[in-house]
Structure formats: structure tokens, C-alpha cells
Design a binder for these strands. Structure first.
Length: 272
DNA sequence: CGGGTTACCTGACGGC
DNA sequence: TGCCGTCAGGTAACCC
């Protein structure tokens, strides 16, 4: 269920776990596919590969090894957990992939709904799932980029924000939260949002993502458990999942509508 | 083509 | 209790 901040939190947790650049003893696939077929042959070839670095691109974890790259997308329900050497940890029905490290630790990928992706590539920049992605919101993203991306867009601004060719990493929760902070109604036509409002949107998308990453950071310590249970940022939602509650700014009832099939939360008084 | 709708899959929850 | 409908933080195929 991760959006950018959650994936970034997982990345930072894995960074600690993988700091000593461990070697892979073997990758165990306990079924042959998730959303897509698993690269079983590549998994076998990765025996002995050293994990050099882990990065994030959009909602993908990119594991650099000395034998190519692993790509991991958590979909809606994917989690990685670390099991220390000799610790007992029985695998459950949704533990689909286990990376056995030479030091005895195991990295276990669990994903009940199996919307996640695990793949292998020589070059992440050329991978089909990566190559057409838009800008990273916390890096090179500018109001000029956003204005360009929204020009002629007749969809709602919320749908556009969640479109990875416009900007990556913004999912259903942070789209609602950023639009609320920016004072822009989610159902506004994307190409009719004024440039001043786009400036505000950029600012607030970044702010909410940064704040959420900070809140997520506190869950790194129990990374060995399961990601997401603490939900540190959950308590800071201003509108998401708060339909019927009073707006924290004006007291108006928070509304829920459906946009492109997703629950959308907003305040009719604060958002124009 | 750009846009919305539906499908993928399992589990949790509320209403009856 | 159990059954049923609905919903869930994502993507992409599909259809007009």
C-alpha cells in the first residue's frame, strides 16, 4: 500500500540491513509469479552476487548487485522483512520470495494480494516499468514541468497527480492530502489549475511527502518486524479517510467522492 | 489519442 | 455465527 514515503522508509531500512554489502546465497521463489512471472532463471544466476546498494525510483526499490539489478515494487500489500541468522520464522502462505544471504540472514517478501513486482534487469533506466516514469517530486521537479505535463489535460487534477508520467510516487492518500493543503479541489480539470495554484501544489506535494518520510523514519527501528503497522503519519492526515469529520481548518464536514475509482477526501470550503 | 472503467488478488470489516 | 457486499496506500489492459 506504499506510496513514495513508505517505499523510501523501506529503502532506508534495507540500506541499514545491507550496509555491509552481503552476498546472496540463493533466492528462493515459493511460487512462480506475483502480478507478473518471477525471473526464476535470473534468481538462480544471482547466487553469489553481492548486493552493493539500494535505491528508490518512484515506488520501485532498485537493488544494485554485481550481477545486475533487482527491481521490487510493493504493489498494495508487499513487505520486506529481515530475519536474523538462526532466528525461527515460519513462512506464511503469502511469503513468496526469500533472499538467503551468505551471512545467514534472510530477506522475506510477503504480498497477500500479489500486486507487487519483482524483476531483474541489466539497466534500470531501460526497464519497461521505469523508462517512461515522470520526475521525482523531491528532486528535479519544477512548476514548469508540472504546467507542461498538465497542458491540455482534461482529466481531474487528482488523477493527473497520481499519473506516474506527470510525477511519480504520489498515490491516493498523498494526492488528497496535498490537494487539501494547496486549497485545490480534486475534481478540477487539470489544465484549468492556475499557475499560482500549481506552485502551491508543488510546494505541498513536496511538504507532505517529506513530512511523511520523517514520520515513517520512526518505523525503521522495527523494520525487522513488518513495515507499516505503526502508521506514524496516519495520525497526521488532514482529510484522508476522514469523511464526515470536521475540517481541522474550518470545521466544515470533510467530503468523500470517487475519482477514477478511488476514494477522494476534500473540504468544500477550504478547496476551490 | 486521452479518458474512465475494470481486472488482477486476498483480507478486513460492517450489516443483516 | 456466517454470508455478502464493499473497500483497501497500485498498475495496466481494455473500451469508447
Amino acid at each position: 500500500m506504499p506510496e513514495l514515503p513508505e517505499v523510501e522508509t523501506v529503502k532506508r531500512g534495507l540500506e541499514q540491513v545491507l550496509a555491509k554489502q552481503p552476498k546472496i546465497a540463493r533466492i528462493e521463489a515459493r511460487r512462480k509469479d506475483l502480478r507478473d512471472p518471477l525471473p526464476l532463471k535470473r534468481f538462480r544466476e544471482m547466487t553469489g552476487a553481492r548486493i552493493l546498494e539500494i535505491r528508490r525510483r518512484a515506488k520501485y526499490l532498485v537493488w544494485k548487485t554485481d550481477h545486475g539489478y533487482l527491481l521490487s515494487h510493493l504493489g498494495m500489500t508487499g513487505t520486506w522483512r529481515v530475519v536474523e541468522k538462526s532466528a525461527n520464522d515460519d513462512l506464511g502462505p503469502h511469503d513468496h520470495v526469500v533472499i538467503h544471504l551468505e551471512d545467514g540472514r534472510r530477506l522475506i517478501y510477503r504480498d497477500p494480494r500479489r500486486f507487487g513486482v519483482l524483476d531483474w534487469t541489466h539497466d534500470p533506466a531501460k526497464h519497461a516499468k521505469i523508462k517512461d516514469l515522470g520526475p521525482e517530486p523531491l528532486e528535479e521537479w519544477s512548476a514548469v514541468d508540472l504546467a507542461e505535463a498538465l497542458r491540455g489535460r482534461k482529466s481531474s487534477v487528482k488523477a493527473a497527480l497520481m499519473d506516474a508520467s506527470v510525477v511519480v510516487g504520489v498515490g491516493n492518500i498523498y494526492a488528497s492530502e496535498a490537494l487539501f493543503r494547496a486549497g485545490v479541489r480534486p475534481n478540477r480539470r487539470a489544465d484549468r489549475v492556475k499557475s499560482r495554484e500549481l506552485d502551491a501544489l508543488i510546494f505541498h506535494v513536496r511538504a507532505v511527502l517529506r513530512e511523511a518520510i520523517e514520520a515513517g523514519g520512526s518505523t525503521i527501528s522495527d523494520f525487522a518486524g513488518e513495515w507499516g503497522q505503526e502508521g506514524a503519519f496516519q495520525g497526521q492526515f488532514k482529510v484522508y479517510d476522514r469523511a464526515g469529520e470536521p475540517c481541522s481548518t474550518c470545521g466544515e464536514k470533510i467530503r468523500r467522492t470517487v475519482i477514477v475509482g478511488r476514494s477522494t477526501f476534500w473540504c468544500a470550503k477550504c478547496q476551490k
